[in-house]
Simulated scan of single mutants.
Amino acid sequence: MAATDFKDYYAILGLNKAASSDEIKKTFRKLARKYHPDMNPGNKEAEARFKEVNEAYEVLSDSEKRKKYDQYGQYWKQAATTGGGWPGGGSSTTVDFGGVDFSQYGSFDEFINALLGRAAGGSAGSGRNGQWNYSSYRTGGPGGFGGFEDFAGYENRTAGSSLDTEVAISLTLAEAFRGTSKRVATGEVSIPAGVKTGSKIRVKGKGQVDLYTKQQGDLYLKVEVLPHPFFQFDGDNLVCEVPITPDEAVLGASIEVPAPEGTIAVKFPAGMRSGQSLRLRGKGWPKPKKDERTDLLVKIAIVPPKELTAIERECYEKIQANRTFNPRSNLSQMVL
Score class of each variant (00 low, 15 high):
104 Q>L: 12
79 A>V: 03
250 V>F: 02
21 S>M: 08
242 V>I: 10
105 Y>K: 09
87 P>Q: 06
334 M>R: 10
192 P>H: 02
247 D>W: 03
323 R>C: 13
151 F>Q: 14
47 E>M: 12
252 G>Y: 02
109 D>I: 05
145 F>Y: 08
243 P>L: 04
150 D>Q: 15
147 G>F: 15
118 R>Y: 15
227 P>F: 00
244 I>N: 05
34 K>W: 01
240 C>P: 00
232 Q>I: 15
63 S>A: 05
304 P>A: 01
308 L>A: 05
185 A>F: 08
110 E>K: 07
317 E>V: 13
113 N>V: 14
192 P>Q: 06
230 F>V: 01
166 E>Y: 13
196 K>L: 10
255 I>C: 04
276 Q>R: 11
187 G>P: 01
32 A>Q: 03
207 G>N: 05
203 V>H: 07
252 G>A: 09
52 E>A: 15
116 L>M: 10
23 E>D: 08
61 S>L: 10
279 R>F: 01
112 I>P: 00
81 T>A: 13
130 G>S: 06
299 K>F: 02
69 Y>W: 02
263 T>H: 06
54 N>C: 06
50 F>H: 07
153 G>A: 15
325 F>M: 13
201 I>V: 09
259 A>N: 11
323 R>D: 15
276 Q>G: 15
276 Q>N: 15
203 V>R: 00
5 D>Y: 08
242 V>P: 09
106 G>W: 09
286 P>C: 11
104 Q>W: 04
7 K>A: 12
174 A>C: 04
82 T>H: 09
239 V>P: 01
194 G>Y: 01
218 D>L: 03
106 G>V: 01
147 G>Y: 13
53 V>H: 02
124 A>C: 12
239 V>S: 14
174 A>Y: 02
